[in-house]
Design a binder for these strands. Sequence first.
RNA 1: GGCGACCUGGCGAACUGGGAACGCAUCGGUCUGCAAAACCGACAUGAGUGGGUUCGACUCCCACGGUCGCCUCCA
Length: 468
Amino acid sequence: MTVRLYSTLTGCAEPLHPDVNGVIGIYACGPTVYSRIHIGNARPFVVFSVLKRYLERRGERCRLVINITDVNDKIYDAARAEGVPSTELAERCARQYVEDTDMLGLGRPDAEPKVTDTMDEIVALIGSLIERGLAYPADGDVYFRVAAFPGYGRLSGRNLVDMVPGDDGDLKDDPLDFALWKGYKESEDAWWDSPWGPGRPGWHIECSAMAERELGMGFAVHGGGIDLAFPHHENEIAQSEGAHDGVPFAHVWMHNEMLELSDSKMSKSIGNIALLADVVERWGADTVIAYFMQSHYRSRLPFSDERLRDAEAACDRIRNAVRALDRALGAPEAGESNDPDLMKALVDARQRFHEAMDDDFGTPGAIAAVFDLVRVINQTLDRGRPASGQLREVRLELIGLLDMLGLAGLGDPVDDDAPQDVLDLLAAREAARVEHDFASADALRDQILARGFELRDGPDGPEVYASS
RNA sequence: GGCGACCUGGCGAACUGGGAACGCAUCGGUCUGCAAAACCGACAUGAGUGGGUUCGACUCCCACGGUCGCCUCCA
């Protein structure tokens, strides 16, 4: 069974191809660093990080590259507004971005190149395009000649005739042409030398240069938000394939849909944003990851407290099943035999999980398979206690599936051991209950809760659980 | 104006030409002194509307309505 991913370029699910070294190269467009990233920016980070994780757990070798764009109009603007050098602002925001995404606990990409570290490659790429007649210098700027690249518009499904360009093209031969290099301006406090004079790269060219340096031409997956398909990715294709006489740049173009808040997409320009760090701080990494994974990456995803609450409840359901397994494993009386329903559920869950994931990264179906397993685990433990060996196998398998979704944290053992003062309160409550002094018992229960432990009165007496 | 996508139960959300996953919420039950939590069970005879193709469509085609996206910075 092979993994297939829907490609915006072909409109179909395409099989993944490793490169000549057997590595699946994945390039995802990262943030432009001029402010802290919001929860919408986090979606591609999560999607592509988990994609890599899944492929690796499946036995593939991967290399994930997520760039950091640290030269851009907005960075100059934001730095000027703040009264700091643009390079300083970009560096600070880049650090902040790493910190914020680290909160998710999904690890780092294999490479996180910056534009400022790629100037040589960018200049060389532009030179190569000029040589081929695909680009032309104009008074310190360099522009890509869109009409000279035959495949232009294929990715975003538009033809040149229909396009209504802006009228900013004083120096351009054609309004559709776009900048590869922008000549130095007074208002910009950072610039680099080039054969066409001082200046800085246009938007788009940096990704062509970084992707090629890190992954070579013809890597497996290029992705990012769907709003980047045009013009950013369209222009990347034109630049990269133009400079290599049509050699394919990337095989699959994988785009995630947008988050939406109050029925319109979340975006910095509209201002309806929630910072990733705030959301993770409030809800926890597992809940945020589960929130993303419960919907398909190509679906628009509403963002609201209610959605996060749902995700949190879903996480709790899984945590509770793991906790129930651990309690059963820790119980003194051991079961003798394997439960046949549980054995079957284990096999089914694994199969359904992989079918869903291999079919265009169907994380909602994969999670559904996990929940089906969770239900059977609960049912089984409700009936009695199967053999320890089976419980351990089920636990291992469940955590394994969760790990492929970046949700292994849901299986972390919970320390339910209560400190002595809580145990004293518990004993006092039991004493009150024996006396039928329920007012005191309830007050003591509240005190225990305030100390961070829940009380659950079961058939075998009360148990304390660490509150989540 | 050009291009495109989407419309599934109270909410969120999948798969699929022939049985409508999964989560949340709700309701009922087990347990409990009562709760809470946990667990179990129930919950769309129907998939925006109207046509068409088909033995059969939520699933394919057409129209209409609605929502949204891109065409300018945007994950």
